[in-house]
Structures are given as structure tokens and as C-alpha cells.
Amino acid sequence: MSPIDFVLTVIGYILIGIGAFCQIVAGMGMNRFPNFFVRLHAATIAAIGGSFVPIIGCSLLALSFEELGDVRFFLAGGGFVAAVFLLILAPVGSHLLAKAAYFSKAAVLQPKVVDALEEDIRKGEVHE
């Protein structure tokens, strides 16, 4: 195994380990946070830390995995494309869902101290 392959393998495993840690943390947060708007934080960790990072790690691991032959570049390329899609689409999906949940009042806003968006809507500065 050449030095560059060794470095790629180690980085890949570190990224996959970070992903495993983030999955556990996000799963705990998903179950223990009190309501929908707080759970959005856990969803961020799950999507970026738990999925985007290990996919990149797997692509690097596949690049250094020489037993596969030339097909490993196909695997790495597919992995990078999936990672880029996830990086762009996951936050946008969460945003659309949060906006719809807020304006349709499908999820309760509890505990609420101050809601600046509600005040702005009451003043007429923000429309749905």
C-alpha cells in the first residue's frame, strides 16, 4: 500500500467514525428534545454530520481500495455526487418543512419566550 493510499484510508475511517458518532448523538437528540422546532437541530446533525461526512469518507476509502480495480473510481464518483446532492438538498428540505410547520401551526411552539417572526407578521412586515 502506497503512502497516499494509507493516508486516504486513515482519513476515510476517521470520517466514517465521526459519522457513526453523529448518528448516535442525533438519534438521542431526536428522541429527547421536546418539540419539532428543537428537533430540527438534531436533524441537521443527522443529515450533515451523520450522512454527508461518512459518504465522503467512504468515497476516500474506495479510492484507496485497490482490490476493486478501475471500478473504484466509479464508486468514488457516485459517492461524491450523492454527497453533493445531500449537502444541497437536506437543509433546503428542513427549511421548507419548518416554514410549512410554522405557518400552518401543525407543530406547537412550546416553550416560547419571544417570537420575533410572529410580531413581524402582526405588524404586517412579513407575509406568508
Binding site: 453533493v84 444541497i88 433546503v92
Partner: peptide
């Protein structure tokens, strides 16, 4: 339609 963030991301993603 939906919010401007969704529209912008869709404009980027549709060709890909």
C-alpha cells in the same frame, strides 16, 4: 409557489 430558498435550490439542482 414555496419560499425563495426552495426555488433557488431547485434551480441549481434540476440540471444535475
Amino acid at each position: 409557489g414555496m419560499s425563495i430558498i426552495g426555488k433557488m435550490a431547485t434551480r441549481i439542482m434540476v440540471p444535475m
